[in-house]
């Protein structure tokens, strides 16, 4: 009985997860005429792709750190509020809107005649070119990832037994000490999930890098897009994809929770 019920899920996993991954690995060993080769891997390890990988990692790192810096206090504050669910909803609502739409909205906000610049102008300040810069790229990416970071952190802070915090106060801890010695260590699981959800997608934000950074920021996603759509080199595109999976496994290992490691 149980097996029968599991069948659809198993089928789903095979068709939509396992098969595509194997297909990608298979393609990554193909050259453009379909012969088996290791050429793609050799090319990936050449200077160009390594540089691109480092570049992607750097931006993904910045995005994750800034998102975390914004999200942790936010989650902490929300967990202390009276109408938690309401405020949480406010944070989550932007995720109901398509990412592309949000990105296009930012083009309007950051443009030379956009809202931000008109405000600056009102105050007698110089207009600045915000669009198509690293600044715009990181800002928009952080904006997009905040809800995904807040949610797991909020859940883990919210799950902390209040008595533990009271106990720390009773034992003479200041507010700061209670935060650093009790709340933060106990909410680390949420932080780790938040990092996982942010870091990996941030490695391949090709739409953002084109729309708000004008392709001045090149991520691994840009390379995949180009290999598939312009070069028609599915092998190389898949190889980059395989490396993304490897990076993901690496990040998962680094941020893995204690329970899982046993």
């Amino acid at each position: 009985m149980k097996r029968v019920l599991a069948l659809p899920y198993l089928l789903w996993m095979v068709v939509f997860v396992i098969l595509p991954v194997f297909l990608m690995i298979y393609y990554s060993f193909n050259d453009m005429s379909g012969n088996l080769t290791l050429q793609n891997y050799a090319e990936f390890l050449s200077s160009n792709y390594i540089k691109m990988t480092l570049n992607s990692f750097w931006y993904a790192f910045l995005i994750t750190v800034i998102t975390l810096i914004v999200s942790y206090p936010l989650a902490l504050v929300i967990s202390r509020l009276k109408h938690k669910t309401f405020w949480l909803l406010i944070i989550i609502i932007p995720t109901w809107i398509n990412i592309l739409l949000k990105t296009y909205a930012f083009i309007g906000i950051l443009g030379i005649n956009g809202i931000l610049n008109s405000v600056l102008e009102k105050f007698g300040l110089m207009k600045i070119q915000l669009l198509f810069s690293d600044f715009a790229f990181i800002t928009v990416a952080v904006y997009i990832f905040i809800p995904f970071m807040v949610l797991p952190i909020f859940n883990s802070i919210n799950g902390i037994n209040k008595n533990l915090i009271w106990a720390s106060y009773d034992l003479g801890a200041s507010k700061w000490e209670a935060l650093t010695k009790v709340i933060i260590p106990l909410s680390l699981e949420g932080v780790k999930s938040g990092i996982q959800i942010t870091f990996i997608p941030a490695l391949s934000l090709f739409m953002l890098s084109r729309l708000v950074a004008g392709n001045k920021v090149v991520t691994l996603g840009t390379a995949i897009e180009q290999q598939f759509l312009t070069n028609e080199n599915w092998g190389m595109g898949s190889t980059v994809g395989v490396f993304l999976i490897l990076f993901m496994v690496f990040v998962m290992l680094v941020t893995r929770t204690k329970k899982e490691s046993i």
Binding site: Q129, F132, R210, L211, G214, N215
Partner: peptide, 18 residues
């Protein structure tokens, strides 16, 4: 000199004198 390398977005940007 390069502001960005884009596609159809050029249209909306040039319309706005970006």
């Amino acid at each position: 000199n390069v502001r960005g390398i884009v596609g159809d977005e050029i249209a909306s940007m040039m319309k706005e004198n970006e």
